[in-house]
């Protein structure tokens, strides 16, 4: 039986907390990539060009149906084969960003489709351009529907960042592995990592729910 050692815990805690910053950075960076790329995927599926629509749809399906871990390896190792060397951070953010872009494009699509057709027609009658219709009419109304999905995937991407440790991104899991290997003790580092994840993801998920409720109330969607 192994015992929990408090002095060891306090010894490694600063390092793990430092690495938490990098985990948050990876989650934030990946999410930023996913937000932009996801919007491109969603809008590409709404263009009148059938080839583009179908191709985007298939790419999204493919990315959604295959494991993120494998995609991380693919992006990191395939580049050098063709003379393109990516740093672990670049490859990691690209892979996790692409993966979540596929999910976010569905969230955007659901949000945009929830806006009644009459809103589009009214905007057209008012002689608004497509861009202006999106910006002033559609997106503000699509946002409350999309909010829950956007928030849940923010928590999701945060929880998936440990997968970037496999290509050497020095985030929380990578640091815990290193600490464990140095001291031959895994109980404390892995448990602390679990607790840090809980301490961040539970309040964030709660906050997302609260903001969804208040957003709906402000826009007059619920009483």
């Amino acid at each position: 039986m192994f015992e929990w050692r408090w002095e060891f815990t306090f010894e490694i805690l600063p390092r793990l907390i430092g690495a938490t910053g990098k985990t948050l950075l990876a989650a934030g960076g990946g999410y930023a990539v996913a937000l932009v790329l996801g919007l491109i995927f969603a809008l590409a599926q709404r263009t009148p060009w059938r080839v583009l629509t179908v191709a985007t749809r298939e790419v999204v399906e493919f990315v959604r149906s295959t494991p993120l871990l494998l995609q991380v390896f693919f992006v990191y190792y395939v580049g050098p084969q063709f003379g393109l060397n990516l740093s672990p951070w670049t490859a990691g953010l690209a892979a996790i960003g692409l993966h979540y872009a596929a999910y976010l494009s569905e969230v955007y699509r659901g949000g945009i489709e929830s806006v009644p057709k009459g809103q589009w027609e009214a905007a057209k009658a008012l002689n608004m351009s497509t861009l202006k219709t999106y910006r002033r009419i559609v997106i503000p109304q699509a946002l409350p529907t999309a909010w829950a999905g956007l928030g849940n995937y923010l928590v999701g991407i945060f929880k998936d960042t440990p997968m970037l440790s496999v290509i050497g991104v020095g985030e929380l899991m990578h640091t815990a592995n290193a600490v464990g290997a140095e001291h031959y003790r895994y109980l404390e580092p892995y448990t602390i990592v679990g607790l840090i994840f809980l301490a961040i993801s539970l309040p964030t998920a709660w906050l997302v729910r609260q903001m969804e409720i208040s957003l709906r109330r402000r826009l007059g969607l619920t009483k």
């Binding site: 929880k159 997968m163 895994y186 892995y190 990592v193």
Partner: peptide, 15 residues
């Protein structure tokens, strides 16, 4: 639901 699958897996296997 609040932690990563990878963390859980390592915990199951190493801890």
């Amino acid at each position: 639901r609040g932690t990563s699958l990878l963390v859980q897996l390592y915990w199951f296997f190493f801890v």
